[in-house]
Nucleic acid binder design. Structure first.
Lengths: 243, 243
DNA sequence: CGGCGCGTTGACTGTAGTCAAATAAAGTGG
DNA sequence: CCACTTTATTTGACTACAGTCAACGCGCCG
């Protein structure tokens, strides 16, 4: 349907069909591509620090990113994850209010503030695509609220494992049988509002019950997804219902 | 600057300068006003049920709304609040994934799906305003993740009280001295991942320390905001730091 | 080889959840 | 308007889950 070929940089982009770019025609894509620049980040590298304002937003091409807040004591709290095709950054806010850090070696497509807003004005489809993506991030953030607010530690860990397995699978309704967690135990703990020790203990308990099988420190096989699902769906066991 | 007066329905709208409508010129506003319809909801009334799809989105004019998920056992988990000028609904999703319920008697400005999307296409400023608002909701949702993930019950309750005091105040950087909580104890508990009893106990403890003063079941005065702030800023006391 | 970061395990403690009952507030109907 | 029911909130006593402190194992890199 497109008369013109896509820009070279985008032609073989792995998230071409899912990221915000997918909503653009080749002409628009060329303009976007002209101001966007690719960059690779190693695990642990900071992508955006809270207070930064040079980047309007960025698409994650590959890898994984955590969004975190640092409190007065210097403790990190993870408030969200970004998977490939996801969008980072605060478009209009004077400054980003969360840090973005690479969890694995990652590739980003950065859009500097300069020029980007003008592009959005010129191409409503871009704005609309960003809105679409942002609404999905919002929904994901609320799911995380739901997950963390639950009573027992098991529920939270199970929910996180399933979310990771879903993200690692090509189709969003199936789970990957094997996952390599991009998160350390400490990061999982920070995300779920638990301690490292509790996360570790829950995982050993899961392994003993045959729900999962650990493969090294970070890898694991999901052995009994239905059981894990039931746990999560079961709701706030350990936090009495109040109907 | 506007040559034409604003539509009658919008002329005396209390959130005219803060809601998505504020970004529109009078002509655009007239079109939006033409498809929007006002409706009042009594406390406890359902505004949007998960699965509903007739409403594209809605602006909260007055009152307060909770967004919640209901799990398999029928237990409610509150995943977010909407304050006046805030936006509800899932624009593009095939269906809303959370329930929206009035916490207090509320007035909404509803935009049916029919016609709304066409309006967005015709008026990019509308899309842009919605994006702006959605990004703020996203940021708020992540702050909630941050709050809930914290260790001690005191921190969470203090954070919620301050958030409510901020929302009740005209300027977002100051706290209202007095607030009428739109949430029952059970709703606060569901939001913070605690039990009713714990919330109640924390509040009595706060009152005994002179941090707050309860006025009836729902009303309270903030007596020592700095102390509460310090508590919240202090971070995850009770959940050891891992730097 | 030795230090270092990360993960696991154990023993102990404390906070928040559970069960239960009393009290206060808010509706309802006569 | 008041008596009565219903619902929300508070308080207490007890328990258990998860946090704390501490030690140990493993893999990695200098």
């Amino acid at each position: 349907m497109a008369a013109r070929p896509a820009p070279a940089a985008c032609a073989d982009c792995p998230v071409r069909d899912q990221a915000v770019c997918s909503a653009l025609d080749t002409h628009e894509l060329a303009e976007l591509s002209a101001i966007g620049r690719h960059r690779r980040y190693a695990r642990g590298e900071t992508i955006l620090a809270a207070g930064d304002d040079s980047i309007a937003c960025a698409t994650l091409v590959s890898g994984a990113v955590k969004l975190s807040a640092i409190d007065a004591e210097g403790t990190e709290r993870i408030v969200g994850l970004v998977h490939p095709a996801g969008l980072l950054g605060q478009l209009f806010a004077p400054q980003v209010d969360h840090h973005a850090t690479a969890l694995a070696d990652s590739e980003l497509c950065l859009f500097p503030r300069a020029g980007f807003e003008a592009l959005m004005v010129r191409h409503p489809a871009l704005t609309r695509a960003i809105l679409d993506r942002t609404l999905r991030e919002l929904s994901a953030a609320r799911s995380l609220v739901d997950l963390i607010g639950r009573g027992r530690a098991e529920l939270r860990v199970a929910g996180l494992l399933l979310a990771m397995a879903r993200a690692a699978s090509p189709s969003p309704c199936h789970y990957a049988g094997h996952i390599e967690l991009p998160l350390t135990r400490g990061e999982m703990a920070s995300m779920l509002g638990l301690t490292i020790e509790t996360v570790s203990r829950v995982l050993t308990r899961f392994e003993k019950s045959g729900l999962i099988e650990r493969k090294g420190a970070r890898g694991l096989d999901i052995r009994d997804a239905p059981q894990l699902e039931e746990m999560v769906a079961g709701g706030r066991q350990g936090l009495r219902s109040t109907p």
